[in-house]
Lab assay of single mutants.
Amino acid sequence: MFKRLMMVALLVIAPLSAATAADQTNPYKLMDEAAQKTFDRLKNEQPQIRANPDYLRTIVDQELLPYVQVKYAGALVLGQYYKSATPAQREAYFAAFREYLKQAYGQALAMYHGQTYQIAPEQPLGDKTIVPIRVTIIDPNGRPPVRLDFQWRKNSQTGNWQAYDMIAEGVSMITTKQNEWGTLLRTKGIDGLTAQLKSISQQKITLEEKK
Rank of each mutant, 00 (worst) to 15 (best):
F2P: 00
F2Q: 01
K3H: 00
R4L: 14
R4W: 09
M6I: 10
M7P: 00
V8L: 14
L10H: 02
L11E: 00
V12Y: 15
P15S: 14
P15E: 08
S17W: 10
Q24D: 13
Q24A: 13
N26K: 07
P27K: 00
L30D: 11
L30R: 14
L30G: 12
E33I: 06
A34D: 03
A34P: 03
A35E: 04
Q36L: 10
K37H: 12
T38F: 15
D40V: 09
K43A: 14
K43T: 14
N44W: 11
Q46S: 06
P47V: 10
Q48W: 12
Q48D: 12
I49H: 09
N52L: 03
D54F: 04
L56Y: 10
T58R: 08
I59D: 01
I59W: 01
I59V: 11
V60F: 04
D61G: 09
Q62H: 08
Q62I: 11
E63G: 03
L64S: 00
P66N: 10
Y67C: 06
V70A: 14
Y72N: 02
A75P: 00
A75C: 06
Y81M: 07
K83E: 03
K83L: 05
P87E: 08
E91C: 05
E91I: 08
F94A: 07
F94M: 12
A95Y: 07
F97W: 08
F97Q: 03
F97T: 08
R98H: 09
E99S: 10
Y100M: 15
L101C: 15
A104F: 03
Y105E: 01
L109G: 06
M111A: 09
M111S: 08
M111D: 01
Y112A: 05
Y112V: 07
H113R: 07
I119K: 08
P121I: 10
E122L: 09
E122D: 13
Q123D: 05
P124V: 11
D127G: 12
D127N: 08
K128E: 06
T129G: 08
I130N: 05
I133H: 01
R134I: 00
T136K: 15
I137Y: 14
I137A: 03
P140Y: 08
V146G: 08
L148G: 03
L148Y: 02
D149T: 03
Q151M: 10
Q151P: 07
Q151Y: 11
W152K: 00
K154F: 03
K154N: 15
Q157K: 11
Q157G: 04
Q157W: 04
G159P: 10
G159E: 13
N160G: 09
Q162F: 03
D165T: 02
M166R: 00
I167F: 05
M173N: 01
I174C: 15
I174D: 12
K177M: 10
Q178A: 07
E180N: 02
E180M: 04
E180F: 01
W181V: 12
K188Q: 09
D191V: 06
L193R: 04
L193N: 07
T194R: 05
A195Y: 10
K198T: 09
K198N: 08
S199I: 15
I200P: 14
S201M: 09
S201C: 14
Q202W: 10
I205A: 14
L207D: 14
K211Y: 11
